[in-house]
Amino acid sequence: MESKQSVMILAEIRSQQVHDLTWEMLTWGRKLADKLGVQVDCVVLGIEQGNFQELIHWGADRVLAVTNGRPDGILATPAARLLVEIIRAEQPGIVIAPATTFGRTIMPITAARLATGLTADCTELDIDPKDNLLLQTRPAIGGNIMATIKTARTKPQMATVRPRSIKPDGFDHTRQGEVMIKQYDTANAWPETLLSFRHNEENDINLENADLVVAGGKGMKSKENYQQLEELAVLLGAGLGATRDAVEAGWAPFARQVGLTGKTVSPKVYIAAGVSGKIQHLAGILTSEYIIAINEDADSQIFKVADLGIIGDAPTVVTQLIQALKDLKTDGKEH
C-alpha cells in the first residue's frame, strides 16, 4: 500500500501561467519518487489550460489541473481548499511546493486543514532508506546550522522548497503521461476577491535567472565603488547583487540582496567582490557552478567556497577588470 502513495508537486502559478520554477520542483519530485518507486503527480491550481505536456517531459507521470470554475485566478484561501480536496482524493505520501509567496501561503493553510506537518524553505530533500520517510533539510537559526526534519506520524509529509535549490534536470520529450482536468465545487463562501494586479516595472527577476552574477559587499568601501559593479554588470549582461550589509549601507536596493533573507541565485559564475562570505550570504549562492571571490583578507570565509580567489583590493581589481573587458571589446574579436 505504502508504495502507491505518490509524490505530489505543486506547480508555481504566476499571472495565470505555469512558471518555469515548476521544472525544479519536478526535478525534486522525480528524484524522490524514483527512490520510492512511486509516481509523480503535478498539481496545477486554478488554470485549465497550459503547456501541460511540458510538465510531463520534465518528470510528471500525471498532471492534475484542478479548478473551481472561477475566472479570477488563484487566491490563497480558495486555492488551498482545492489542494485539500485533491490531497484527500489522491492520498499522496509527500507534497512539495516552491517556497514562493504562492507556496508559502497555500501550503500552511493546507497542512493545518489536514493536521499534518510542514517544513518551510528546505534546501535539500531526500528519502531515509530505513523508513522511506522524507528528510527535509533547511537552514536554521539564521542559517548558521542546518536542521533535518521528519514528519513521521501524519500524512502527507509536506515541505516548501527554496527556489534554485536544484538545477532543472531530466527533461525527456519522449516521456508519456496523463493530463486530468478536475473541478471541485468549493465556492459556497467566497471571502476573497482580486481587485487588481500591477506588474513590477524594474526587472529584478533577472538576478535570479542570470547565468552570471556580480555582487558586492562592504569591502567595496563606498557607494561610488559599488556603482562600478553596475558598470561591470552592464558590460557583461550580468545580474547585480549585494550583501545585506551593502544594502543596509544604502548602496543597493533590497531587491538585490542575495542570501538567506534575500534572493537565491544559481548562476554559472558568481563574482563576489568585497564579500566576507558569512553563512547567511552563502545560503543564497551555494548552488552557483563557479565562484570567484575578490577579497583582501586571505583568510576570509568566502575563499572556502571560491573556485578562484583573488587576494587584493576589490575596487581596484574591479576597475582593472572593467578596463580589460573594454579593451577586449575594442580589440574586436575575442582571441
Partner: peptide
C-alpha cells in the same frame, strides 16, 4: 507536533580554490 528535528549539522564548505594575488600594480592585469 507532527514535525520533528532528527539531525542538526553545520554545513561543510569546501571547494578547491585556485588563488591569485593582486597586491601590486604589476599583478593586477
Amino acid at each position: 507536533s507532527p514535525t520533528r528535528v532528527v539531525k542538526i549539522f553545520t554545513p561543510k564548505l569546501s571547494r578547491q580554490t585556485t588563488f591569485y594575488t593582486a597586491d601590486t600594480k604589476e599583478q593586477l592585469p
